[in-house]
Amino acid sequence: MSEVIIYSVITAVFVGVSAGYLGSLMVLEKMALVGDALSHVALPGLAIGILLNFDPLVGAFAFLFASAVIIWHLQRVTKISFEALVGAMFTLALAIGILLLGDNLDALEEALFGDITQISLLHVVAGVAISIAAVFLTRLIYKKLVLAMVSEDLAISKGISVAKTNLLYLFLVSLVVAVGIQIVGTLLVGFLVIVPAIAAKNISRNMTQYAALSAVFGLASAVSGVLLASYLEQPPGPIVVVCGIVVFAVSVLINWRKKTTL
């Protein structure tokens, strides 16, 4: 097995788990499209990195963080929904990214769909560390976020700062999205946040099971996609999506069977 495949499988394991786990909250918050759209916000950062010859991931992180803060602040001030704000932000970012990379089609394709051959040991280490930190921190605020979802008043009555908790969560999603871009690219990383979670929701009996299955399905989609892509010599992004859809389809079947046997 080549070094690149080992690197990409290790990254896929950690990114799959963290994207699935964090995505379970995105789906419950009815912010599924926020995760998807947020990933496109990284495009101008990637473009600037490519054009100015520094690690594009650093640019992606910077843009994602800045966007998370802007979106969070605008939401608090204007009370416009996260989805609408992220929608505006992501189309703007996509436009800027394409304008910056318009003449460089290879780089644009790499940014949109990911290029696993570019993964270095440093990326792997950063990806693993960031994924572990994101899962650990999300676990600490998971109950608070769920309570705020059930009722913001209820959460605040227990002394939870909902606004700050949401900001931290958006930061963590940004981190995971930035790492996921390496594998599936900006266009498809949102998939890893949404689909494992909705597949888990189909068959979970409780929250603990739901969070755990989201992570497992994220791992299964990412790892099987990367391995299959390497075998088929195809870009990993679309293959990860296909594998994830298979997982989702199986969950729909299980759910359907459960309902018909009741």
């Binding site: 979802m149 009722s151 009996r205």
Partner: peptide
Amino acid sequence: GYVPQYVAVSDVPMT
């Protein structure tokens, strides 16, 4: 202790 009028629980798989 506080009991709000509305809670959003229909979509949350919480027991």
